[in-house]
């Protein structure tokens, strides 16, 4: 129990979020959103998780530059891979949600385009990674790329949408976040737990990916 209590916590948090997301009271009467406001508990944690995983990857990228320890490089690349998975889930759920609220799968919106460009920046990370054979060199190049990629990603996904003049997406451009619609704080009771659960699950998946990468690397060395 000593080491994996947080994995259990992650599962319990997400189960609570699935049940609470359906059953807890929520502002179900906000315009075109209607009951889809409950998607908040599932769509938004995907992005939170992605950002936390990318931040972790960023930190391990810097640590690799300082240490040249290939373990840090494995950490960095594994966390980005799982972050991309969560980003894709975020895009897919967001697109589906948009279809039944805004009426279309995709619109020219600062938040959506920012997120899509952000994803492409990290796709380029893979291309760079796969084009270099030498492990140390691969680690150094991609860590430096990561050094620039993460701040630009944050700008694209958070700052640029807020600076846009108009937007449909909540909390960007001229729109407000859901917290202002949530007078009774009912959403928060589920949302925070959901975010914690999904972030922990993301870290869990990333750590598994890391351990697998390390096993394969050690295997190759032998």
């Amino acid at each position: 129990m000593r080491k994996y209590w947080w994995k259990i916590l992650s599962i319990l948090c997400i189960i609570y979020a699935i049940v609470g997301g359906f059953l807890m009271p929520a502002p179900d009467d906000v315009g075109i959103l209607a009951k889809t406001i409950r998607n908040l508990h599932f769509h938004v944690p995907m992005w939170f998780t992605m950002i936390i995983l990318l931040l972790t990857s960023y930190i391990y990228g810097i640590r690799f530059l300082a240490s040249s320890d290939l373990k840090h490089d494995s950490m960095s690349s594994s966390f980005i891979k799982i972050a991309m998975l969560f980003g894709l889930l975020g895009l897919a759920t967001g697109s589906f949600w948009a279809r039944f609220t805004w009426g279309t799968w995709w619109i020219e919106d600062a938040k959506l385009n920012g997120a899509a460009i952000g994803m492409m920046i990290y796709l380029a990370y893979y291309i760079l990674r796969n084009s270099i054979d030498d492990d140390i060199k691969k680690g150094k190049f991609t860590a430096v790329y990561n050094l620039f990629a993460f701040p630009i990603f944050i700008v694209l996904i958070i700052i640029y949408p807020r600076m846009a003049e108009t937007s449909l997406h909540p909390a960007s451009g001229d729109t407000v976040a859901f917290s202002s619609l949530d007078l009774d704080n009912n959403l928060r009771k589920v949302f925070y737990i959901a975010a914690i659960g999904w972030i922990l699950l993301g870290v869990w998946l990333s750590s598994l990916k890391y351990r697998l990468t390390e096993l394969m690397r050690i295997d190759e060395e032998i």
Binding site: I14, I15, F22, L23
Partner: peptide, 13 residues
């Protein structure tokens, strides 16, 4: 609706 929730929980578990 509890049936749907139960299904989701079963899949997730």
């Amino acid at each position: 609706i509890y049936v749907v929730i139960a299904v989701l929980v079963i899949i997730f578990v």
